[in-house]
Simulated scan of single mutants.
Amino acid sequence: MRSSDRLLDLLEELSAANGATLTALSSKLQLPKPTVLRFLRSLEERAWVIRLPDGGYALGPHFLATAQKAIGDDAVLRCAAPHMLSLRDLLDETVSLLSVAGTSRVCTIEYRSSQPLRFVHEIGMRAPLHAGASGKVLLAFGPAALRKAVLAEPLERFTGHTFTDVAHLENELRKVRGAGWAMSRGERSEGGLAFAVPVRDPQSGRVHSLTIFAPEARYRAAERATWVRQLTACARAIETAAGVSRGDHCA
């Protein structure tokens, strides 16, 4: 594995852990402590990582400032929160916004269901694009180069419902583009059900996926049209707010 990959793995682990010790990072990354410590010291020198009072490590101000700038440059990420909260409160199911990261998808904003049985993506979570409603929306409405790159690689099977045949997935993506929304049942997580629609930043053109993620056991087929309508209305409201936003201000 390249040093750059190890460094990225370390940053992702720090993001997920919200602070971690050298021992825990070494174990999680399966790297020797001296190697991890060398990376940490280099990152600490440039404020990407900070040392905590308890001796652990966490993401530093330079990382957080970079992330904030990225959010500020994307009007959808800046304006989505109140509309997503309203949809979550209306349905009491998890509502997430996912974006493309390389050839994966990453959860950037999420508001969880308050119900004891719930499905979540977790902010910062990365997952393949070929499995799940949100990934299919990002592939279907994203650039052709992205689809070409994803479909050129073997499609990993996660459950019996995962699309692993390229021709079948391409046909599914055509259906998603025609319908304007995607649905998945247990493609990435057994027992999970999701609906997703695209949200396009009117300023940058970047496509995100607005997703409802719920237990399949709680879903009723009669709710499909209502969920799609409410999800689509939320997406259009986010796009409208993003289209008239200026700087830190949203409609």
Rank of each mutant, 00 (worst) to 15 (best):
E216D: 10
S99I: 05
V100M: 10
E172D: 12
R177A: 03
P53K: 03
P128Q: 04
G247Q: 08
A81G: 08
S209D: 07
L231N: 03
G180M: 04
S86R: 15
H249Q: 15
S114K: 01
W181F: 11
K69N: 10
T164C: 15
E172W: 09
A20Y: 02
L90C: 13
I50H: 14
R200P: 06
T23L: 12
P32E: 14
E190M: 13
H208D: 06
A196C: 09
H121E: 10
R118S: 12
R185E: 13
L31C: 10
R188C: 08
R41H: 08
I50C: 08
E44Q: 13
R218Y: 00
W48S: 04
E153W: 12
A17W: 05
P61K: 10
K33I: 13
L40C: 08
R157L: 11
A214R: 14
E187F: 04
C234P: 00
G247H: 10
T159Y: 03
L29T: 06
G124I: 08
V244M: 04
K148T: 11
D201E: 04
S114E: 09
S184N: 03
L117H: 07
E187W: 02
R46W: 14
P34Q: 00
A133C: 08
F163L: 06
A65Y: 10
Y111E: 13
A133Q: 09
T23P: 07
K175M: 15
L173V: 09
G247I: 09
V76R: 02
G124H: 04
L64P: 00
E110S: 03
A214H: 02
A24Q: 14
E190C: 13
R38V: 02
D9L: 13
G205Q: 05
A214E: 09
L155N: 08
A131D: 02
A47Y: 10
R229W: 09
D73F: 04
L129Q: 05
G19Q: 01
L139D: 03
S15D: 14
P202A: 12
A241S: 15
V197G: 03
L151V: 02
P128N: 10
E45M: 07
S113L: 01
Q115T: 02
L231I: 01
F39M: 15
W227H: 14
A67R: 13
R105N: 07
I212L: 07
E239M: 07
A196R: 04
P32F: 00
E172G: 05
M1Y: 12
A17I: 09
A222Q: 14
N171E: 14
L10R: 00
P154A: 04
S184F: 04
G180D: 06
L210R: 03
V176S: 12
A233M: 07
V197Y: 09
A17T: 10
Y57E: 10
T35P: 00
R206G: 09
R200D: 05
A152H: 00
A225S: 11
Q68D: 11
A194S: 14
T66F: 11
A144Q: 07
I71Y: 06
A235H: 01
T164I: 05
T108V: 15
R88P: 11
L31F: 01
L151H: 04
S245R: 12
A80Q: 11
T240K: 13
I238K: 07
G243S: 06
L14C: 01
A80K: 03
D165M: 01
Y219F: 13
F63L: 05
E223L: 06
D92S: 04
G60H: 07
R200T: 15
V36Y: 06
W48G: 02
M183E: 13
R188H: 06
D248K: 13
